[in-house]
């Protein structure tokens, strides 16, 4: 059993926060005590349910305070699982302020969600942010090899792809429909896709 606190400096409920929620729920389901710092108060609480406590953290200062509070309880976390640079900085600052003589402290595990170097969005302060953020990280995970190739850091990066719910497949056969999911890349303009799929799919009476 490992006591885990997930940390994300955010008041939203987008991709990273959903990742945190799903992972926290699964870790809790596997009988590990889990808490979450950050994320939209309503959405995150609705998803996490009653068994996983959540503390709001909309700024770095909020997040530092929340982490410090989590560290001084009777059974403090053994792992701080930080998501994105602001949470890494917050954990680093909170641990720096921790009193000596309180034991080894939690391991800090960072999950990198985006393909950019740590602190790259901080302008001229990027080197300082990167140094502070990365100082206390014991292990680093990226959600893909693509992300791992970009993040840098002083610890080796392991790749653990994001998760997916395990749902039953529908019993009925699929229709012959191609779903086109676009990103903002040149080959993904609608006209190019149509040019790619015209002919064969039309001749089969399918569309997409």
């Amino acid at each position: 059993m490992t006591r885990i606190v997930h940390v994300v400096r955010s008041d939203g409920f987008a991709g990273v926060e959903r990742f945190v929620a799903r992972l926290a729920i699964e870790q809790s389901r596997q009988a590990h005590p889990v808490a979450v710092i950050g994320g939209d108060l309503t959405w995150m609480r609705d998803v996490l349910g009653r068994d996983i406590p959540q503390t709001p953290a909309t700024s770095v200062l909020d997040t530092v305070r929340a982490v410090r509070a989590a560290l001084v309880v009777a059974e403090p976390p053994e792992v701080l699982h930080v998501h994105m640079t602001a949470a890494e900085v917050s954990a680093s600052l909170a641990l720096a302020a921790r009193r000596r003589g309180r034991g080894p402290g939690p391991a800090v595990v960072a999950t990198c969600h985006f393909a950019s170097a740590r602190g790259s969005g901080s302008g001229l302060a990027a080197p300082v942010v990167s140094a502070v953020a990365g100082r206390r990280i014991d292990a680093q995970i990226a959600v893909s090899g693509f992300v791992a190739a970009s993040v840098g850091g002083r610890t080796p990066t392991q790749v653990v792809h994001t998760g997916v719910p395990n749902r039953d497949l529908p019993a009925r056969p699929r229709d012959r429909v191609a779903l086109v999911a676009q990103r903002l890349e040149p080959e993904n303009t609608p006209t190019t896709r149509c040019a790619s799929s015209r002919g064969r799919m039309c001749s089969n009476g399918a569309g997409g």
Partner: peptide, 17 residues
């Protein structure tokens, strides 16, 4: 890559630390 598998990978890493 189901969530239970992903969580188990993370937990194995935590255990090492």
């Amino acid at each position: 890559h189901t969530w239970d598998v992903v969580a188990a990978r993370y937990l194995a890493l935590f255990e090492e630390l």
